[in-house]
Simulated scan of single mutants.
Amino acid sequence: MSVLTMDSWLQASPAWIASLPDGLQTLLFQLYQTFIYQDRWTWYVDGLKITFIVTLGALILGIIIGMLIAVVRTAHDSQRAGKHNPVLGVLNAVCKVYLTVIRGTPMMVQLLISCFVIMVPKDDTGRLICGIVTLGINSGAYVAEIARSGLMSISAGQMEAGRSLGLNYGQTMWYIIIPQAIKNILPALGNEMITLLKDTSLVSVIALRDVTKQAQNIVANTYTPYVPYISLAVIYLVIVIILTKLLGILERRLRASDRR
């Protein structure tokens, strides 16, 4: 791919640009290189699509894993003294090992192991699935603790009320406990989504072309890291600010509904 030089860019640019200070000329040239030349702004757009897909897929997987682990651990801890279910004991032990391993190792290391040792994807689709699964498994460990705290925040009387209506343990959890717990943990889940969005930048280590990888590709073509990486930081910052505002609106509505 051809490299645009500043001299050739100045020759093709309007005359007023040549009258600007050298520092401003350099900045405009780098902005042109990063976004305008060869429609490189589309690289960021394509990368954002991958970033959002990985974030959404990993969040859904993480919520499923986290809720299952939270239910198992809550059921185990809620057992009456002297009445212990051996199956729950084994499942609880497996969950503890999962939480210890996932929370005790860096996400980048998990990505490298899953995508170069376990899955070994051969194309972009494989790398996308690998990224979603790995980040989802990682997120599940943190969602599990969030969900468990939400389940534990529901009074024991709710479970007793459900059982008195003839519901078994699973039905009481599904119809009574979990809906209330989800409402309590929605703000925390939103914060986990924001964290997960920023963590998707790590999938660039497995050559998945998210927005971070696309910025790296632009740097490889322009040999100027300043504008591409600053632009990348601004993109993440804007997205996080928007999500934070939306979460704030959601929290206010939840508080308003609690007062009614």
Rank of each mutant, 00 (worst) to 15 (best):
I69T: 08
C115R: 00
G104L: 10
I102M: 13
I69L: 12
P106H: 07
K83Y: 04
L112M: 15
N92K: 07
F116E: 15
V109W: 04
V72Q: 03
C115N: 14
V72T: 06
Q110K: 07
P121V: 04
P106W: 03
L99R: 02
R80C: 09
P121N: 11
V97T: 15
C95S: 10
G82H: 03
G104I: 04
I102N: 10
M108L: 12
I102S: 01
R73I: 09
P106Q: 04
D77Y: 00
M107Q: 11
V101T: 01
F116V: 13
L91N: 07
V97E: 09
V101F: 11
L88Y: 08
S78A: 14
T100C: 07
C115F: 02
I118L: 11
A93M: 11
P86W: 07
S78H: 01
V72I: 15
K96L: 12
V71S: 08
M108G: 05
V109R: 04
V120Q: 15
L99Q: 13
L112N: 07
A81F: 04
I69P: 03
M119N: 06
N85I: 00
A93T: 11
V109L: 13
K96S: 15
I102T: 09
G89N: 00
F116N: 08
V72E: 09
A75Q: 01
L112K: 03
V117Y: 12
V120R: 12
V90N: 00
M108I: 14
V72Y: 02
G89F: 07
V87I: 15
A81L: 14
C95P: 15
K96F: 11
I69N: 01
V90H: 02
G82N: 09
M107I: 14
F116L: 14
S78G: 12
